[in-house]
Computed example of a mutant assay.
Amino acid sequence: MRDVRSYQLPDDLVHPLRQGLAEVSVQTIAAITEEVPAYAEAFAGVLGHKIERAVQAALGTFLSLVARSSGDPGTPLASALEGAYALGRGEARSGRSLDALLSAYRVGARVAWRELAAISVRCGQPAATIADFAELVFAYIDELSAASVAGHADELATTGRLRLRHLQQLAQALVAGEPVHVLQAAAERAEWTPPQTLTAILLPERSARSLIDLLDPRTLPLAGALPDLPETAVLLVPDPQGASRPHLTRLLTGHNAVIGPARPWLRAQDSVERAVRVHQLHTPVGNTVVDTEDHLAELVVSADPVALADLREQALAPLAGERGTAAAKLVETLRSWLLHHGRREDVAAELFVHPQTVRYRMARLRELYGEKLKDPQWVLALTIALAVPVPETS
């Protein structure tokens, strides 16, 4: 393809082309309007006259480029390329792909060349000159197209980075539990359409990077937001309740994830906090998925670890005189007996001991507790005290 910068056409040949430029522009715009529907509305609206002038300017620039003398150091191509670059950026800002613009370039090149060639033929230019001229027309359009492609790509990269930063700021605000007006403003700034609910997922950062593309496009990822879990990422997933929650669980299998509860998107912090608490109680290992919905009772019981420790000490006071191993077996048996409502066979099966062993241990417990094992308040205290392991306290 010829370099359009290297060609000079004598002024006497360019002059009739300049005179017909306005009509060539009209024909070019009419063809683009008809063949590229995406631009029909733009040409018909308030932008129509501006676009028409832009088309005339582009064609005029081309004629000025090929008509300049060989000694002219300046180039009118720079301004045309800047305009094409800006046009590409504008298309990206409008949310449109380059398909329509490149189609308009192709149609415009074909029609402009057809009309300019007709003028050249009427002026008696030789066929070789006209053919050479055609190659330059299309080389010029190729340069404009390339500039628009570069502008479109640069705008997407710029806006993409900016939007990603806004999405990260939104995720940080949600995890931090910022006020409603702050969250709504952050969502608007990030051009993020809020869902009904968000569910927090905690998982290793490497897993978050591999899973993000499989989730709802509105999913908000955030790494490094949890000081106590430095290598754990948070994913805020829109609306994974109902039938989609089991699907989410299957998708997370093998990634050591903790799934929080679904909460209204403005209260996503609640889901994050619950997931963190369950993560602290049951750190997922062995490629497991921990669902916070399966640990509600444990969360309630362990809400005040100091009070739980005091209750346990009080409830197990009758065992204070028992030796370590014997005491541990009695506590284990008492817990199972409470949970199985005294069904000896079920207790034996859970503890992998003979039912007679359960009978012996319960006899010892009745000696130690006496009538307390029949007192509903003591049974309640023992059940709560033995529901979960006592967290370590400082």
Rank of each mutant, 00 (worst) to 15 (best):
R274K: 10
A307G: 15
I259D: 01
P238I: 04
L299G: 07
P194K: 00
P230C: 11
D304V: 03
A303F: 10
P217Y: 10
Q269W: 00
Q241F: 07
L236K: 07
L220A: 13
I259G: 01
D239A: 13
V278N: 06
P305I: 07
A262N: 13
Q280M: 13
A257M: 06
L229E: 11
W192N: 08
A268V: 03
D310T: 02
G260V: 07
R250E: 13
N287M: 06
L248M: 06
L308F: 04
P240K: 05
Q196D: 09
S302V: 11
L198P: 01
E298R: 12
V258C: 03
E205H: 02
R277H: 14
D228N: 12
P261M: 06
R274V: 12
A262D: 15
G224K: 08
E191F: 06
E293V: 14
Q280Y: 10
A275V: 07
P194L: 02
L308V: 05
V276R: 10
Q280N: 15
A208I: 07
L311F: 04
T249I: 14
P240G: 08
L281T: 12
A307W: 13
R189Q: 15
D228S: 15
L198K: 01
L220R: 11
D294T: 15
A309F: 06
P217L: 07
V289Y: 03
D294R: 15
P195V: 01
L215Y: 04
G224A: 03
